[in-house]
Design a protein around this nucleic acid. Structure first.
Lengths: 239, 239
DNA sequence: CGGCTACTTGACATCTATCAACCGGGGTGG
DNA sequence: CCACCCCGGTTGATAGATGTCAAGTAGCCG
């Protein structure tokens, strides 16, 4: 086990959906033009926004709720590759088929854009294109950070990294709270971390025994005083 | 264990460096302009092209050899997030620091571009920007495919997926050969798959015992007749 | 109240990591 | 030219983490 403090956590990559919410790729001056392309649409909890390999007819930006992006194997094994929050972009604009599936976790609202219209918008707005490329590279990097976790981390390290990153994402702008909402199920967490739900449960039990966290339905209370090593330490700190 | 045929393998994502080599983001008509920005540079085997967290002063396109991209933890655990082949783009154009490290595996040659000049080129060439965004999204998807492997795969599945994807990448254009060169060390393979070198070695021994492959120094002979299930099956086939 | 689902807990199995020995090829230097 | 060493790789014995299977609990909704 390798440890690091829990608190400061130099704000790392989003680990998010396609693009972390903070990265706005539509500039204010073209926003209404962009919005005109959109159709508002919402999804009930546990319903599918789109599924991998379906024809990619539209792209989305999430406006409310949380969604899970995942890829699956034929026998049902599933890897959640990210969680999307409001502001995140979803879809495969350059592909004829969606590259992964997206399920609403709770109630979800989104703006839907026909794929072709979206591409046309991009072609007409190089500045947006530029910002979106920047966001896409950040996203690739976030995926690679998660690869590091999946390939090298222990169960406890995986969970710790998850909860800290998640807390940073939803704390977004406002101060970080020690009461961290967890809208997703244990199965979602397990599939995100490459673990089983039982292992996640046991890690939680252990952290609770050690007074690092308090387990609450749909949330987690981080024990503020906890200077306990929780996370694995990167060889190079984030910028 | 879940099986799938070895042969057809619908050409999947690159799993590559920053951008799969086949994706040319510099159009012919601006290529000389682009090249004028470049400085040719080469790297001896096992040397570092750049390291994570170093100032991001230049970006590169690989012209010869193979490179490994990786991220590390403080205690030395390493995750190789991809291998780069000629044509692949390397660097963190939008960041002040490199997002991951790159080591030459064998002898490597590359073109080096000052980061600012590269960004200026992108801003001046929306078409390149567009193609690069497309490539970046492919790369994100490849990273997510690898996340699926790292999170869900067994040792044997991981190795099989690796060897098949690698073979497809270097076969690139020409017919796929059953003699697959492996310029990287066992350690590289292990760190790419989230395994130990011993486990990789044992998987190879097992596959050899079962006449699926023949192990050769710096290469692997795939036994053509092998209809043996080797890979894990995706729930949705690639497009 | 009953039954469902999500979650937890326990006992056990298994895969992969760990630790250690060994092998073989290539380079180096005597 | 040979001996040696070093390094990468293989193989074996063992241990440990996590997965599997099964039972039990708690909350929630009908």
């Amino acid at each position: 086990m390798v440890g690091v403090r829990l608190e400061p956590i130099p704000a790392r990559e989003s680990g998010s959906a396609l693009f972390g919410g903070r990265k706005q790729f539509v500039l204010p001056e073209v926003e209404t033009e962009f919005d005109n392309l959109a159709r508002r649409i919402s999804f009930a909890p546990k319903t599918t926004v789109f599924a991998e390999s379906e024809p990619s007819i539209a792209v989305y930006t999430l406006t409310r709720g949380t969604a899970g992006l995942y890829k699956m194997l034929a026998d049902g094994r599933r890897q959640i590759v990210g969680f999307a929050l409001p502001g995140d972009f979803l879809g495969s604009p350059f592909s004829d088929r969606y590259a992964c599936s997206v399920d609403a976790i709770g109630e979800v609202a989104a703006r839907q854009f026909p794929r072709e219209a979206f591409l046309e918008f991009l072609r007409a707005n190089p500045k947006s294109l530029y910002l979106m490329l920047e966001a896409a590279l950040q996203e690739t990097n976030a995926a690679r950070d998660h690869m590091l976790l999946l390939g090298c981390g222990t169960a406890e390290e995986k969970f710790a990294e998850f909860i800290i990153t998640w807390r940073a994402r939803i704390g977004h702008g406002s101060a970080l709270s020690n009461l961290v909402p967890l809208p997703m199920s244990r199965r979602d967490v397990a599939d995100y971390l490459g673990l089983t739900i039982e292992t996640v449960s046991r890690v939680l039990a252990k952290l609770e025994r050690e007074h690092v966290v308090h387990v609450i339905p749909n949330a987690l209370q981080l024990m503020g005083s906890a200077e306990r090593p929780l996370l694995f330490e990167r060889s190079h700190k984030a910028a």
